[in-house]
């Protein structure tokens, strides 16, 4: 019963939650770096003229977006050993998160690049810049600005998605809650604490998104109708 809600037990398990939180944070950081890498690569392929590059990138993005992360995770977790690749659960988890988020990151970056008005491209072409110069000096600096807030949004999604790694026994935050729930039969204590920690991470990232928006001079949300 909830009237017996035991803060003492939560206290006892606090070190475990702490470890879980730390694991969630750093595996999210690594996975996000991986997602950026995958995303930039996919986006670069997607913006080329050559169909041989564009089609695989598009297909990859569509397949990832049309299937659940959990299925992708199980695909790697149960499938890689089949190919003779034995990896620790944590590595499989990070791999799955990177490959999954990478598809979304690719779309975010693409939208950022496409949001640059045609006039900018035309002006840089007119002044004799090469493709790479145009990208580096004109397009990307402007695109960078508009992609930061949605990228932070994707980071929030990814941190929450990382909870699924508990299902392949990665010792992250949600797993800590599961342990408390099953060891002591205290699911309320376990999962409410876990939820509180995730909320903390959520508000940190959300605050960062607001700050970055202000810092980049993007307007705040539109006023109410």
């Amino acid at each position: 019963m909830l009237e017996n809600f035991s803060f003492r037990t939560i206290g006892e398990y606090l070190p475990l939650f702490g470890q879980g939180l730390v694991t969630t944070v750093w595996l999210s950081v690594i996975s996000f770096a991986g997602a950026l890498l995958v995303g930039i690569l996919l986006c670069a392929m997607n913006l080329q003229r050559s169909r041989a590059l564009r089609v695989p990138a598009k297909a990859y993005i569509d397949v990832v977006r049309a299937t659940p992360l959990l299925v992708q995770l199980y695909f790697l977790y149960f499938g890689l050993p089949r190919l003779g690749i034995i990896l620790p659960e944590l590595v499989v988890g990070v791999l799955a998160l990177s490959l999954n988020s990478g598809a979304y990151v690719a779309e975010i970056i693409r939208a950022g690049i496409l949001s640059i008005p045609r006039g900018q491209v035309e002006a840089s072409v007119a002044s004799g810049m090469s493709y790479l110069q145009r990208m580096r000096l004109v397009i990307l600096p402007q695109a960078f600005k508009v992609t930061i807030p949605p990228l932070l949004g994707q980071a929030i999604v990814m941190v929450k998605d990382s909870a699924l790694l508990s299902l392949i026994s990665v010792a992250e935050l949600t797993r800590a809650g599961q342990l408390l729930a099953s060891d002591r039969f205290m699911p309320a204590e376990g999962f409410i604490t876990v939820a509180a920690f995730y909320l903390m991470l959520y508000y940190c990232l959300k605050g960062l998104a607001v700050l970055s928006g202000r810092w980049l001079g993007l307007g705040p949300a539109r006023s109410r109708a």
Partner: peptide, 19 residues
């Protein structure tokens, strides 16, 4: 929006019966 869906499911599945 701030918590993982997995955690929400666990909360509903395990805690509502306690209530």
């Amino acid at each position: 929006r701030g918590t993982p869906f997995l955690v929400q499911i666990f909360l509903i599945f395990f805690i509502l019966p306690e209530l």
